[in-house]
Computed example of a mutant assay.
Amino acid sequence: MDRETKLSGFAFIVLLAGIGLATLFIVLFAELADEMLDQELAVFDAVTIRLIEAIGSGWMDTAMFIITELGSVWFLVMLSIGVLWILGVKMRDKWGVLFYLVAVGGGSLLTVLLKHFFSRERPSINETIDAVGYSFPSGHSMGSLIFYGFLIYLVIRTGQKPWVRWATVIGLSVLIVLIGVSRIYLGAHFPSDVIAGYIAGTIWLVLSLVALEWIQWQQRSPVPPVAALRKVLAPVYRALIDKL
């Protein structure tokens, strides 16, 4: 089996794994939403809120207000302009531009649809921290996971130095978590809203990246995907038949 076929077959399996991961998270979201509608998360939400409120202080209020703005619509839109410029002008990656818009723009639309579908009221309304409208799932959590998750993908995909990749993955992952915590701390969301936002964001991001990788793979690989997978799995199939 030639090297190109092996790589193509491996890529196909990775794509299938991505679809499987998205499916798993869809099930998790459905379970969480069902428990939310049945009021089974009230104790979890109340206990988590109390624990986070216990670290409250003046400087923490300021820090959380700043952190929550890093996941706000206006801030992500400003950063998106820079990302689109890099993808479109510097990298000339038309598919990257398209699927960035699909991921971030489509994710925003999905957030609105989910909020109106579940129509959960917020713990409190505060326009100064963009805490208006419905609560489930958290738009800040979902949007920040999709946006910063896409940045992590770009850094890894463009072959940056190992320390840059690790610093990006760790730094942005911590930021995503802190944005979710800030929404709970500031009283804008229940903890279950934040978890739901992370799950929904993961689903949409994974599906967007799987579609992007599939198209890019189709363009750069001389081996048809199905043929590559058949060649990779054929030896395994023959070995199983021989044992039987």
Score class of each variant (00 low, 15 high):
D2N: 14
S8T: 13
F10K: 05
A11D: 06
I13E: 12
L16V: 12
A17K: 13
A17T: 10
G18T: 08
I19V: 10
L21Q: 04
T23I: 12
A33S: 15
D34K: 14
M36F: 08
D38T: 06
V47C: 02
G58A: 08
T62I: 12
F65V: 06
F65H: 07
I67F: 08
M78Y: 10
S80M: 04
I86K: 02
I86L: 09
L87R: 11
G88Y: 00
K90M: 05
M91E: 08
D93W: 08
F99W: 10
L101W: 03
V102K: 04
L110K: 02
T111E: 05
H116W: 03
P123T: 04
S124E: 10
N126L: 10
E127I: 12
E127H: 07
T128W: 11
I129Q: 05
I129N: 02
S138V: 01
H140R: 11
I152R: 06
V155R: 02
V155K: 03
K161I: 04
V164I: 15
R165E: 05
R165Y: 07
R165P: 01
V169L: 13
V169T: 07
I170Q: 05
G171F: 02
V174L: 05
I176A: 01
V181T: 10
D193R: 00
V194Y: 02
A196L: 02
Y198I: 00
A200I: 03
V206Y: 03
S208F: 00
L209Q: 05
L209G: 02
V210M: 06
V210E: 01
W214H: 05
I215R: 15
P222V: 12
V226P: 03
V226C: 15
A227M: 15
A228I: 10
A228C: 12
V232F: 14
A234N: 13
A234H: 15
I241L: 14
D242Q: 15
